[in-house]
Structure formats: structure tokens, C-alpha cells
């Protein structure tokens, strides 16, 4: 399987895998605990396109041989997919419904949220975690977020998402505690929208 990856074009991942994974994990934890907060990944390496630094770092930290992974371009020759398979050893799967993690690089044409794994009543945590590479993240104007981890409310906006996405997200509140958790990334920045957060506006 590995032979189908274009090895000669691979670039290195984390320069210090242990420390860098821990710092990235901490960043994701911080973002998940404070929905809408923009967290910066303080690291530098060159992931291949279409991956941005934050998505690549999250994948390096969270994906391994036991996690299943879905993205738009599944071909091993695709630079981003080959790179993730080499560095994480994750299994790339065809069906988003079975994915532990999904990376979306073109949010304008992404599948509906219910095409991913929403977990089941016994194990809601088995759902897919979506990493969506979006345009600019901003915390000054936009949607109004309330819920666990937010004292009163916070404002949050992501560029490049469709109205359908926000409608999908809205309809997920009906199936709580099932549903997907989302991490938005842009360059070296990330913000999370876990299923517990209520979005208005």
C-alpha cells in the first residue's frame, strides 16, 4: 500500500514529534473547551497542499494507525493524503459515515453533516470529528455562540461556509447527544464548534 505514495515528494512533519504533538493536543483541548475561541498553533513545518498548517498539525497529533480518516481526495497520489498516510499511518476510507476524522478542504462543496458518523445512543463519542479548512476565522462579529465553556456568549464567524452548512448544524441540535464535533482551521489558527454549542444568528 505504502508504495503507491509518492515518497520522493514527501516533506517532514513535526520536528519534535513528542513535544509538538503535546502542544497541538493542548491547543485543540483549549479550543474545544472554549467554543469559538481562536487558538494559534505555534509551530512551523511545511505540509503539502491542500493542507494548512493547523489542519496538518491536528492530524499529526490525533491520527494514528487505529483511526479511520476521510477526505475529499482519497487517492494516495494526492499530496496531502499521501503525506497523512505516511506520517500518521491512518487508514483512509471511502465512506465518510465510518470515519473517525474527516478533513474538508473545500467547505463550499462539502457533504451534508448527516453523511458523517453521528455516533450512536450508547456511544455518542464514536462520531466523526470534522476538520474544516475555511477562510478567515474571526471572533469579533458573526454568529452568537452559547453553551458549555462560554460564560455569557461569544461571537464567531468563519468565511467560506454555505448557508446549508449552518442549517445542517442547526438541525443537529435535535439529535443531541449525537452529532459531529467540528474544528475550523485557517493557516495556523483553529477554533472549535463542539456539538454542545448553540449557534444563533
Amino acid at each position: 500500500m505504502l508504495s503507491s505514495i509518492d515518497l520522493n515528494k514527501l516533506t517532514p512533519g513535526f520536528s519534535d514529534p513528542v513535544q509538538d504533538s503535546r502542544q497541538t493536543f493542548r491547543a485543540v483541548l483549549d479550543a474545544m473547551a472554549h467554543p469559538g475561541r481562536i487558538v494559534i498553533i505555534d509551530n512551523f513545518f511545511s505540509p503539502p497542499p491542500p493542507l494548512n498548517l493547523a489542519s496538518a498539525a491536528i492530524c499529526l497529533a490525533l491520527l494514528d494507525f487505529e483511526t479511520t480518516f476521510w477526505t475529499e481526495d482519497l487517492k494516495a497520489k494526492a499530496p496531502g493524503t499521501g503525506w497523512l498516510r505516511f506520517h500518521c499511518g491512518c487508514s483512509v476510507i471511502q465512506n465518510p459515515l465510518e470515519a473517525d476524522f474527516a478533513l474538508i478542504t473545500s467547505p463550499d462543496i462539502m457533504p451534508a453533516l448527516n453523511e458523517f458518523n453521528i455516533g450512536n445512543d450508547e456511544n455518542p463519542e464514536f462520531s466523526t470529528t470534522l476538520i474544516i479548512q475555511a477562510g478567515r476565522l474571526s471572533a469579533t462579529k458573526g454568529k452568537r455562540l452559547t453553551g458549555p465553556g462560554i460564560e455569557t456568549f461569544s461571537t464567531f464567524n468563519v468565511e467560506g461556509l454555505t448557508n446549508r452548512f449552518w442549517q445542517d448544524r442547526q438541525s443537529q441540535s435535535a439529535i443531541f447527544p449525537l452529532g459531529v464535533d467540528i474544528i475550523f482551521t485557517c493557516e495556523n489558527r483553529l477554533a472549535a464548534l463542539p456539538r454542545t454549542t448553540k449557534v444563533e444568528g
Binding site: 514527501l10 516533506t11 517532514p12 512533519g13 514529534p17 505516511f86 506520517h87
Partner: peptide
Amino acid sequence: YKHLHKPE
């Protein structure tokens, strides 16, 4: 040379 995977 550079490391793609450091020795682990």
C-alpha cells in the same frame, strides 16, 4: 539528508 521520520 533530512529526516522524514526521526529514529523512534
